[in-house]
Design a protein around this nucleic acid. Sequence first.
DNA 1: CTGAAAGCGCTAACAA
DNA 2: TTGTTAGCGCTTTCAG
Lengths: 345, 345
Amino acid sequence: MRRAATIKDVAAAAGVGLATVSRVLSGTGSVSPATRDRVLAVAKELDYRPSAIGRSLKLQRTGSIGLLVPDITDPFCAELAAGVLDCARTLGEHVILDVAHDDPEREGEIVDRLVEQRVDGIIAIPGSGDGAVWRDAARVVPVVFAGRGLPGLPSVVADDRSGVRAVVEYLVGLGHRRVAFLGGHVSVAAGPEREQAFRDTLAELRVPVDDDLVVRARSTADSAFAAAASLFQRRSDVSAVLAASHLLGEAAVLAARGLDLRVPADVSIAMIDDMPWAELCDPPLTVVARPARDMGYRAAELLLRDPARRERGRPVVLATELIVRGSCGPPAGLPGGSARSSRTR
Amino acid sequence: MRRAATIKDVAAAAGVGLATVSRVLSGTGSVSPATRDRVLAVAKELDYRPSAIGRSLKLQRTGSIGLLVPDITDPFCAELAAGVLDCARTLGEHVILDVAHDDPEREGEIVDRLVEQRVDGIIAIPGSGDGAVWRDAARVVPVVFAGRGLPGLPSVVADDRSGVRAVVEYLVGLGHRRVAFLGGHVSVAAGPEREQAFRDTLAELRVPVDDDLVVRARSTADSAFAAAASLFQRRSDVSAVLAASHLLGEAAVLAARGLDLRVPADVSIAMIDDMPWAELCDPPLTVVARPARDMGYRAAELLLRDPARRERGRPVVLATELIVRGSCGPPAGLPGGSARSSRTR
DNA sequence: CTGAAAGCGCTAACAA
DNA sequence: TTGTTAGCGCTTTCAG
């Protein structure tokens, strides 16, 4: 691993000027086939690798973007990251990944370092902070948000309202009247919008909203579990629960199991965000899926090849999908018999 | 977003020389408090951000490392990546992430691009290729492997043999004699080592190895499911199965469910690699956990701050842990009654 | 078609 | 303590 060959070495060895080598390797300008071949041969001989740093310095663009997520082990984040990587690859960009763990201060530090690296832009799933960090950042470097938007800044988000509406309609259609909402300030977007959509849809369907059935957990697994368990215990009459995030859904499943509630015979469970484990659950969980991968892909696209649209800052909204599996059935005591036997799939 | 201020701008505005500004900002050398403050003030005023490209060019090191995994949406890879990010952060390094989808050609391309970026090193979970790509790569840039090693090159791996031994001993201790092994060429390391360890342990325990119970799937979910299902159907006498990867474990769970086999009453299931869903399964799955996060952390450490040890190329081996949950019990018809009632947890 | 030279932003001798 | 200067590897006018 000795000193790597530079363009100068190649030029010398090929007996030509620096510029010629540059032209050959970047395909710009015109060179006689003869010298061209010679340069190429020498370059291979020397195992020459053009230095991206030299080029970046000259060109004033690095060909890399920053990707900032709360937590790469969260399947939603990972899936979205995969989308970003897909797109970046087709566009020949590198992706510098970092995680902020929902800490605004850390988000700030990371953005600063990314700016020093002169990334061409940043894609971020913002944490639950107030967005001050991001408004500052967006003044210095192009930023596109994914999964969760910030007013006035470009973003790619899912149509949460429609998603919530679809699942609530489904639940009510099944005959449920006492539907609980398990919400909270969970980092990956379970803000107040979903709760509002829940309330609105119930109102539209003329089902009374029982405030006691709307519970909010903090963003730890323990808090989520406690909230779910206490809900089930306090109100044995709930026949269905919508969990606003996968953490909350996990809590609901575990709490129901802990209390020996059968799903969906005793209680139906649905959650927002599809996870690999949702299919492995018994019964498999009915979910509202956000197109995480697409969101990542589109965000990268918006950032890298659609500056005009990005400037306008209006969010790109992607459709969600209601995936009906086996965790929801008619409420107990309703015609239709055992909910289990009416599993959609 | 106009042209960013350079060190020259700062120097001019503060009425000092370039070097002085550089000294102040990098903390090197000595400067009078007076000028120091002035420079700092001007820098803040101009919102000056030192350019990492300029510095990299001069210093001949970029402060970033490459991280190459087969698939970032795989929980094992994601967890390992999180470990790498942790360590990189404490060392002030950036991480350029890319995915190769177990394609050697693509691994090669990515390595080339990473080399052009002049990363300080590369951490990789290699795909199932023959390692030629990596032997070449290691000649040009420091490489550390994680999760799966390559002979002669530095790596951080788990003690698979001990892990397999532990779970097989556990199964046999429970009374199982017809233990199946569900293996295959799965991308994230389910090579022949695990199968060999399985055979060896059974032999040690004087349990006959039935070749018909050792099945290999290809690395698709379909193939895994087919392998598991056909195993269960062909041999209704298997009382326990060890799945060599999480994909295979998933297949075993699904196949058992599809055939209405009760776990663990009819069949016990254990798998290698702990996944979030293993706890959500019903019953929760007994697993051999590899310390994915630690492996990532240690790999980064080895790469960045232990060049001497790295050079030696001997693998760092981390312990696995047998996590006993509820998916394994005594074989049917053995004293101990319903396996279900004897759940460990 | 080709080469010489300037300069991207920064750091580190070296001089003062 | 401070400023001047060279040069990291590359692209790109501008001459020839």
